[in-house]
């Protein structure tokens, strides 16, 4: 079923929207959640919750890209759950590793809370940074830092050695750090 047809079902308040969403994107959202939570049962619950949130949002919200919309919903649901339940657990979650990597992008600062940059400012710089990357590098970066995909999965999917993926990500993190500094982003 086409995305627009699925959206139409939501707008028609037809619960078939949920089954069609799950059929087409269930594996996708569960995979994202599993990357973040490292727990299959939790990931399944976030998968179900994703459709509930979509149901509550549509209408009137009309996503332009349904795939990304669901991806963002489940990412947030999973991160919220991670903060509440998994902060002390390492488990199979990719988040601790991703956070440690992103810490390398931080500039040294003694800034207090009042001088910290807003999320929108940070995202604007991220989008600019991503725009400048070639498509493959951009996909690698997004896979790791949006989807929290394991390095081995990224390497497999893009037919690269894990060491090559790590090296590419390392370089891009260095470039991102520079861009964040250039734009005065303080985290």
């Amino acid at each position: 079923m086409q995305d627009e047809q699925i959206i139409d079902l939501y707008f028609a308040r037809n619960e078939r929207a949920i089954s069609e969403s799950d059929t087409k994107y269930g594996g996708y959202v569960q995979s994202i959640s599993h990357n973040i939570l490292g727990d299959l049962e939790d990931a399944k619950e976030c998968r179900s919750d994703t459709w509930l949130h979509a149901w509550n949002a549509m209408p009137p919200f009309h996503p332009e890209k349904l795939c990304a919309y669901f991806g963002k919903i489940v990412r947030n649901l999973s991160l919220n759950r991670y903060e509440k339940e998994h902060a002390q657990k390492r488990g199979g979650s990719e988040v601790p590793g991703v956070i440690d990597e992103l810490a390398e992008c931080l500039a040294d600062t003694n800034a207090d809370v009042e001088t910290q940059s807003e999320g929108k400012e940070i995202t604007a710089v991220l989008n600019d940074f991503l725009e400048e990357l070639d498509p493959k590098k951009r996909a690698l970066f997004v896979r790791r830092y949006f989807y929290a995909s394991p390095i081995r999965d990224i390497a497999h999917d893009y037919e690269m050695r894990e060491s090559a993926v790590k090296m590419q990500l390392l370089r891009m993190r260095g470039e991102l750090k520079q861009q964040l500094m250039d734009h005065g982003i303080i985290l």
Binding site: S31, K65, G119, N127, L130, A139, Y147
Partner: peptide, 27 residues
């Protein structure tokens, strides 16, 4: 905070990278 900011990147970037985040690679 930086990781959370990634959650707001443009949809097109999310979608472009979604190619392999597909059916049940990890389920």
């Amino acid at each position: 905070k930086l990781f959370q900011a990634f959650g707001e990147i443009k949809d097109e970037h999310v979608e472009d990278a979604a190619e392999h985040v597909r059916p049940d690679a990890r389920s």
